[in-house]
Design a binder for these strands. Structure first.
Length: 989
RNA sequence: GCCGGGGUGGAGAAAUUGGCAGACUCAUCAGCCUUAGGAGCUGAUGCCCGCAAGGGCGUGCAGGUUCAAGUCCUGUCCCCGGCACCA
């Protein structure tokens, strides 16, 4: 008899499968397709570890099983080889990343093959292959063309060790996801992908993924962080005075002017609204000098123009010898070229403007344009904005060109205000102060002009430079500084309230400003107590009677209740008041915690962003025919740390001709993040060698979506979110056939070291899978790994645990090989002699049922137990050759090498992979007789053995005949008998 | 703080979903076999009392529902993961 030599047989079958192309996935096969996917690895220098083994083995078992179930299974593998791990390893070893990556890939592939995984290597992809990243770059350009890739300068997360910017998702607990360094902030020009534009779609899409685990969906949902609330304007209580200039053919008593004047008066604001000379035939000379002579200007003056009044206002500022508060233009223009006809003022004005002078004379500039304005088109306003800067507002007038008797959008921009976001508009009567984030644009503008400007500027500076970690550290006392001299009007109470800057308000969320309601918000409460700001309760908990003023000023209450001291809303329930008050004081808005994806990295080893910067044409995408933009091969690829990519110094590569105007231009030198290549790789597997497109729709339609995606929980808000985003976008572009990429997600739990701690070199508790492959074989490794516990649970590796599985396989080997237990012999007669014992037949049917069900439900651990139990049950029984073969067929997905070899020893010439998955006889999955537990008052008093499915009468009779039961029931009245078939009988006395 | 997941022998874990708690495996102990064993085989192994027959307790803790609770309900503690001043 041969010995079980795992080394020999494992190598033999791995070679065999490869030679026979056993696992090739055929395009457009008639069989139903099954797409089984595992996250492809980054091939680091350390090689693959237990963390990789777990999903790979599970997916492999599942794939082999599904092939036998008659599916055309695609089970592909590839390499996510760009990114930091590869590059850092290369730097450490002093080898070029392209060299070390190649080596690491070869090593990882060797490992994977030694584990006996049934990947279809004909579809292998590598993200660093120019034929692959050509399409990564191509997809980036699609984002760019759709307006979803943009460049911006801002404060970003910066990892000081890895010397690169990071996306929000890559910052875990204030630390770098890769290296654990505390993340700093840095002001940098970066490329972003506008994932926020897909926030709602990403959120809604989760609802159509019933086969995803709830916790995964919930984690994504929380990350997207939708919240509905109100945006409310708080007007500045600053004493501005206004000069209002009407337009062509107008008067200060026409259109919205009377209403506007009324609104200003209501607020106690002064204004001058002169009747312009000759409104029917205006000339620049006449009107401008009139304004200069008749109106008074000071540093608090806001000069407002409507229509032609805008032109006059600008001309006035060209001549004015002092600085005024601000310039506001509504329906303005700077060219007399109108679509319909030429106006009389065409030749009476000089249409050249000194924009610099105008800008310098006004403290601020606001431009309002009406998109429905056909007399003065919106482009005119946009052009003004381009020349003057400032803020641009696009808002339809009540009548086109703002000619209705009330035009609220004009009032809104005329009176400076601060917009806040709140989910509790019902508490607005309790808003006693406003808080701006230190990053708020207004904070920087106002700071130099307040009486305590030194303090304010210092505070802003400190807050901005503080790492997020420190700023939000738990239990940290809140800090802030008042903008002295600045106050706003609470639109509900009409009272003046102060404005503060504090870093407990986050710049990037909502409007970067909040209304503080200390009575009903914990954070505001804490802040108000520290700085002695008023606390006004406006919500009374339900337990108090209606309108009860027991609301306590010494504590805050954040729950629902009834409004008090809230004007006409008093007495309303909070739930009812929220939408009503949102509408009364502002408008409903939705905010998301999700931030745009910082998409550039200041590192060498990544896909170059295919963009050219031309001094004349601006940002120019690299033409598709020039893709891929190949990563240049260079000697020095170390990160600079300055925020500039190492590519920036390679003049030969950087300097190019602009594809549009052919003048000298420069390449974008940042590279894409780690996550780019993996955001679409499953699509490439469907059509891995296409030169024309990233994947043909036809092949996508056959293979995608992925049916089961095995992977780690740690990718939930990284790769899994990013790739859903890419897929949704490409689907919207008509380039991808399915809306969601992955029908089912199967996350796995961690494998801890034998000490119950996370495996790590520094702890010295790393178990290397390759060691076990050598000593005990891949089949043992696979089965023990599955045996550890449920796929999704965290489990720890027992140092000696795998020997149990090895023993089992040894016994199986002996059992199958041994003659004459199941009739294998040179003597042909003997093979016919042995038939299954009744017990053996039932055990095999039970096993078939158990393994089939477990595999459908990804319960691999209990399958392994079932095999062992089966062996223990039948080892003494006679078993037919056919049954042994069924047993090997069942075992094959778990331990493919030994199963193939034994099957071969039994005389089969065919790979087990080509067998059909066994079925079972439902009548044979139960034993002939069962043991019934006999209880009295729920306590076990004895057992009876009866035929399976015996009725209550039989069981009751048998039980009452038990001596122990007889004695205990003597002289007792049985009140009730509870009978559960095949389980128990319980006498209640 | 908020949101998830989880607490069962010395260890990893099972438990047909309310029906004998601890299957299967490791470790440990005893015996057999062996020149030897980190091999193989047989058996024992939740805790407590008891020579024994037998009895009592037992699924983080405290209650509850039920003939019957690891499983359902209420409260509470601890561990792991995610988010975290998101207004």
């Amino acid at each position: 008899m041969q010995k079980y030599n795992h080394k020999k047989i494992e190598a033999k079958w791995q070679k065999y499968w490869q030679a026979k192309k056993t696992f090739l996935a055929k395009d457009f096969s008639k069989k139903p397709k099954k797409y089984v996917l595992v996250e492809f690895p980054y091939p680091s220098g350390e090689g693959l570890h237990m963390g990789h083994l777990r999903p790979y083995v599970a997916a492999d078992v599942y794939s082999r099983f599904n092939r036998m179930k008659g599916n055309e299974v695609i089970f592909p593998m590839g390499w996510d080889a760009f990114g930091l791990p590869a590059e850092n390893f290369a730097i450490k070893k002093g080898v070029h990343p392209s060299v070390s990556t190649k080596k690491n890939v070869a090593n990882a592939k060797r490992q994977i093959q030694s584990w006996g995984l049934s990947f279809d290597w004909s579809r292998e992809v590598n993200t660093t292959d120019p034929n692959y990243y050509k399409w990564t770059q191509w997809i980036f350009l699609q984002f760019y063309k759709a307006g979803l890739a943009y460049e911006a300068t801002g404060l970003i997360n910066w990892c000081p060790k890895d010397k690169t910017g990071l996306a929000n998702e890559e910052v875990i607990d204030g630390k770098c996801e890769r290296c654990g360094s505390v993340v700093e902030k840095k002001e940098l020009r970066q490329w972003y992908l506008k994932i926020t534009a897909y926030a709602e779609k990403l959120l809604q899409g989760l609802k159509n993924l019933p086969q995803w685990p709830e916790p995964v969906k919930l984690q994504q949902e929380n990350w997207i962080g939708k919240s509905v609330g109100a945006e409310i304007d708080f007007e500045l209580a600053k004493k501005s005075n206004y000069v209002l200039l009407h337009g062509f053919k107008g008067t200060p008593d026409g259109v919205f002017f009377p209403w506007l004047k009324g609104e200003l008066e209501k607020r106690g604001l002064k204004y001058q609204a002169p009747q312009m000379p000759n409104p029917e035939n205006p000339t620049e000379e006449e009107q401008v000098s009139f304004v200069l002579q008749s109106c008074k200007f000071d540093e608090n003056t806001i000069l407002f123009g409507h229509s032609l009044g805008c032109v006059v206002a600008m001309k006035v500022l060209e001549k004015l010898d002092k600085k005024i508060g601000g310039l506001v233009l509504a329906g303005g223009f700077s060219s007399p070229q109108f679509k319909d006809k030429t106006r009389p003022f065409h030749n009476t004005f000089n249409w050249e403007f000194n924009y610099e002078k105008i800008k310098n004379s006004a403290g601020f500039v606001k431009i309002l344009s009406d998109p429905n304005d056909f007399a003065v088109r919106i482009e005119q306003g946009k052009n003004l904005h381009k020349n003057l800067g400032g803020e641009f507002f696009e808002a339809p007038g009540v009548e086109p060109h703002f000619t209705h008797s009330e035009e609220p959008s004009i009032l809104r921009i005329l009176i400076p205000s601060i917009k806040v976001f709140t989910t509790r508009p019902d508490t607005i009567f309790g808003a006693t102060y406003l808080v701006l984030a230190p990053e708020h644009p207004l904070a920087g503008v106002v700071a130099p002009h307040v009486s305590n400007s030194a303090d304010v500027l210092k505070y802003i500076e400190q807050a901005k430079s503080k790492p997020e970690m420190e700023r939000s550290a738990e239990g940290k006392e809140k800090t802030g500084v008042e903008l002295k001299g600045v106050s706003v009007i609470n639109p509900a109470t009409k009272e003046k309230i102060p404005v503060w800057i504090a870093d407990y308000v986050i710049g990037g969320y909502g409007t970067g400003a909040i209304m503080a309601v200390p009575a009903h918000d914990e954070r505001d409460f804490e802040f108000a107590k520290k700085y002695n700001l008023p606390i006004v309760p406006v919500v009374s908990p339900f337990m108090g009677s209606l309108g009860d003023k027991t609301a306590d000023k010494s504590a805050n209450y954040t729950g629902p209740g009834v409004l008090v001291d809230s004007g006409k809303f008093t007495g309303m329930k909070t739930s009812e008041a929220i939408p009503k008050m949102a509408a009364a004081f502002g408008k409903l808005t939705t905010n998301y915690k999700l931030r745009d994806w910082v998409f550039s990295r200041q590192r060498y080893w990544g896909e170059p962003i295919p963009i050219i910067h031309c001094p004349k044409c601006g940002i120019v995408p690299v033409p598709e025919k020039d893709l891929p933009v190949k990563l240049p091969s260079v000697k020095n690829y170390h990160p600079t740390g300055t925020g500039e990519s190492p590519l920036a110094v390679i003049d030969k590569w950087v300097n190019v001709k602009c594809p549009v105007c052919k003048s000298p231009a420069k390449r974008e030198t940042n590279t894409m993040p780690q996550w780019a290549g993996s955001s679409w790789y499953w699509l490439r597997y469907a059509d891995p060698s296409s030169k024309k497109e990233f994947a043909s729709i036809k092949k996508q339609k056959y293979w995608t979506p992925v049916d089961v995606y095995f992977g780690g929980m740690e990718h939930t808000t990284l790769h899994l979110l990013y790739s859903r985003f890419w897929n949704l976008f490409l689907h919207d572009q008509g380039l991808v056939s399915s809306r969601e990429p992955y029908t089912m997600r199967k996350p796995h739990g961690l494998i801890l070291g034998p000490d119950g701690e996370k495996m790590s070199k520094s702890r010295g508790n790393v178990v290397n899978p390759d060691t076990i492959v050598k000593s005990h074989g891949a089949d043992t490794l696979r089965m023990y790994e599955l045996f550890l516990g449920p796929h999704e649970a965290t489990v720890s590796w027992n140092e000696l645990g795998h020997v149990g599985v090895k023993r089992f396989l040894d016994r199986v080997w002996l059992w199958v090989c041994s003659v004459p237990i199941h009739g294998r012999s040179k003597d042909a007669d003997k093979s016919a002699r042995y038939t299954d014992s009744d017990k053996a037949r039932r055990s095999l049917n039970k096993l078939t049922k158990k393994i089939s069900e477990d595999l459908e439900n990804f319960r691999f651990n209990t399958s392994i137990s079932a095999f062992m139990e089966f062996y223990n049950e039948v080892k003494e029984e006679t078993v037919s050759l056919a049954s042994v073969k069924i047993f090997l067929t069942l075992l094959y997905p778990f331990a493919p090498h030994i199963s193939e070899e034994l099957n071969n020893i039994l005389g089969s010439k065919k790979s087990l992979q080509l067998e059909v998955w066994p079925t079972y006889d439902p009548k044979m999955v139960v034993d002939a007789s069962v043991e019934i537990v006999v209880q009295i008052n729920g306590k076990v008093k004895g057992k009876v053995s009866v035929a399976t499915n015996s009725n209550q009468q039989t069981v009751e009779q048998d039980s009452r005949n038990l001596t122990a039961v007889k004695n205990l029931l003597l002289g007792q009245t049985v009140k009730r008998v509870i009978f559960v078939q095949n389980r128990l009988i319980n006498f209640v006395v």
